[in-house]
């Protein structure tokens, strides 16, 4: 069991239950009733804790190494995923995976930011921080999807676009900007789902979509809480406080009208039951893709434009 700071009590109770179970077997005792009672208690504790998560708790969940990554979901949601590589200009960025697959028999294009499940994999994936060629690969695959009238599904999970020397030399800003512009008029339905961290412009570059969803404990923000704290509080160690101030949870963002849907996670977070999580995402996708495919593309594009056009709080 993965333990987050707020799960300490639950971890202790879980250990006790396990002890009792062992005892019951070793001593051949009937402790079923006691065990059941404790399990109910644990369930209620979990339920209560997950109802009252702070923004920082969610940051911790969203960043768990054990949190399912894009490829975990892709393999469970889609059939026959075939990965396609390269941006045709410079290289192939392993922080973004993309390809074609079926969603319940419908051909779709899938593009996702990919983190690793361990250190080695994370180094290969650059911790999910794309370089410009990643965004250009994504755009190439989106244009391909447009040509063949395939809906696009993006899974967003990045701390942010990579801040390296080469990334700047190859135009990180231009690559993100172009995606924002091109996605806004892409003539095929686009759904983006923030599955973990939605970090800044690097996340938005895959999230100019007809519908933007978030998993229940995912976060989506203008900058990492650490970066925000360092800029506005001049102290990066105040990240916890920043997380609460920034309004980055799925619940905040649906209230703002910035996202369209929250997909509930299994109790204890997506990592406790990947199959259940994937099945739930799939159900949501099937319904929505079918609905979006029925809409005339011109109407869809107008809606997409105004979806972002209306965001902003001003006084005149």
């Amino acid at each position: 069991m993965v333990t987050l700071p707020f799960e300490k009590n639950m971890y202790e109770l879980k250990s006790k239950i396990d002890e009792l179970k062992n005892l019951a077997i070793d001593q051949n005792m009937d402790l079923d009733k006691e065990i059941r009672q404790l399990e109910i208690k644990l369930y209620n504790m979990q339920k209560e804790a997950y109802k009252n998560l702070t923004a920082w708790d969610k940051v911790s969940i969203a960043r768990l190494v054990e949190r399912p990554t894009a490829l975990d979901y892709i393999n469970l949601i889609f059939e026959d995923f075939m990965e396609l590589h390269g941006d045709r200009y410079y290289g192939d960025d392993s922080a973004i995976v993309g390809g074609i697959a079926y969603l319940n028999g419908i051909p779709v294009t899938v593009i996702a930011q990919q983190k690793g499940n361990n250190t080695k994999e994370n180094i290969k994936r650059n911790f999910g921080m794309p370089n410009p060629e990643g965004y250009r690969k994504a755009l190439r695959l989106m244009k391909q999807a447009e040509k063949f009238k395939r809906p696009v599904i993006c899974l967003v999970d990045t701390p942010g676009a990579y801040c390296g020397l080469g990334a700047e030399e190859r135009g990180q800003g231009e690559a993100i900007a172009r995606n924002l512009m091109e996605m806004s008029t892409l003539k095929t339905p686009v759904i983006s789902i923030v599955i973990g961290e939605g970090g800044s412009g690097g996340a938005l570059a895959l999230a100019v979509a007809d519908e933007v969803w978030m998993l229940e404990h995912a976060i989506y923000s203008i900058l990492s809480p650490e970066g925000f704290a360092s800029i506005l509080f001049k102290d990066s160690s105040r990240a916890k406080e920043a997380a609460n101030v920034m309004k980055i949870t799925a619940q905040d963002l649906i209230n703002f009208g910035i996202i369209d849907r929250i997909i509930k996670e299994p109790l204890g977070g997506a990592h406790t039951n990947v199959d259940e999580m994937a099945a739930s995402i799939k159900r949501n996708l099937e319904e929505s893709i079918n609905r979006l495919l029925w809409e005339p593309i011109e109407a869809l594009l107008i809606k997409r434009y105004y979806k972002f056009r209306k965001i902003g709080k001003i006084v005149e």
């Binding site: 900007a177 512009m181 806004s184 008029t185 203008i222 703002f256 972002f308 056009r309 902003g312 709080k313």
Partner: peptide
């Protein structure tokens, strides 16, 4: 982007780029 307006500022990037499109 202006940090003090959080996600609203981020979304202005999409809004302005869409207008350019």
């Amino acid at each position: 982007a202006r940090m003090q307006e959080g996600i609203y500022s981020l979304m202005q990037m999409a809004k302005t780029s869409a207008a350019i499109a």
